[in-house]
Design a protein around this nucleic acid. Structure first.
Ligand SMILES: [Mn+2]
Ligand SMILES: [Mn+2]
Ligand SMILES: [Zn+2]
Ligand SMILES: [Zn+2]
Lengths: 138, 138
DNA sequence: TTAGATAATGCAATGGAAGTGCATTATCCT
DNA sequence: AGGATAATGCACTTCCATTGCATTATCTAA
């Protein structure tokens, strides 16, 4: 059994051909990508299938969604220890307004914060936007 | 000159009837609201006008947009000291998955963070989602 | 190993929000 | 008051997200 196949298997996701391809694409892109990006890189696949594949991946802790402020949700692979119960990759995300790329800053953790008494935290989104290093050196 | 009128005036926005109404609605809602929310509370107005009104308000530091993870942008009035050059109300936002309400936690500032060398920060979005106090007491 | 149950896929269609072009109307300043 | 400029309303377009349903693939247990 190939590596990707066993990863999906471990996360309780049936390793279909389509899913292996989507996983492949996600792992080849160093930036976070949108559903449309995936669609463009996988001309054969139907958008609906991709949509539901990503949804499944998200639910099973394989990818995490990123709201980068563009209104288009991006996705990136999770750390190995994420699972269906909890996403544990709480890092910053950066969106460059010049090149439009959205990146996981996996080395930069979301800082601890307090929220008002009585509120329950389930998800945290910390996204910084501006100009990335590459675009800053023009 | 009424109070709202002078606020708009100070921010270099012509105080038209429509704009006064939009401002009114924003100030009456204690939560952040969407364009559609405004539309529903102002049946007479055309959506395009509201769209452009909000855009103008945003540019002139009257409202700030909030990406709460739903994909629908919400808006809330800024602090008095925001202006066209810079939004200075850097606080947390909370989105309740039960009642769907999005709130400004104006008392809770966005913590200082470091980002990688060479990156330039322009905007920061820090949104927590989960269950709000009200929904947590059911 | 095969049949039947269950899950995944593909197609077609819908919904909702964002955004644009242009003609008309209101506002403001001189 | 008059003319420049800005705001508004209407009609349309685009794009992404999402669903229903029929078909096909996958897995499991007999
Ligand atoms: Mn990430
Ligand atoms: Mn706010
Ligand atoms: Zn860039
Ligand atoms: Zn709530």
């Amino acid at each position: 059994m190939k590596e990707v196949e066993s990863i999906l298997h471990d996360k309780n996701v049936r390793p279909t051909a389509m899913r292996l391809l989507v996983y492949q694409i996600l792992s080849e892109n160093k930036n976070a990508i949108s559903l449309t990006d995936i669609e463009n890189q996988l001309k054969t696949a139907d958008r609906t299938t991709l949509y539901r594949t990503i949804k499944t991946f998200e639910e099973q802790g394989i990818v995490h969604p990123i709201e980068d402020g563009t209104g288009i949700t991006k996705y990136a692979l999770c750390a190995a220890y994420c699972n269906a119960d909890k996403h544990k990759d709480l890092h910053l995300h950066f969106h460059c307004k010049v090149c439009e790329e959205t990146t996981c800053l996996t080395e930069y953790s979301i800082p601890q914060i307090s929220i008002p008494e009585g509120y329950i935290t389930e998800d945290i989104n910390f996204t910084v936007s501006g100009v990335c290093k590459k675009c800053n050196q023009g």
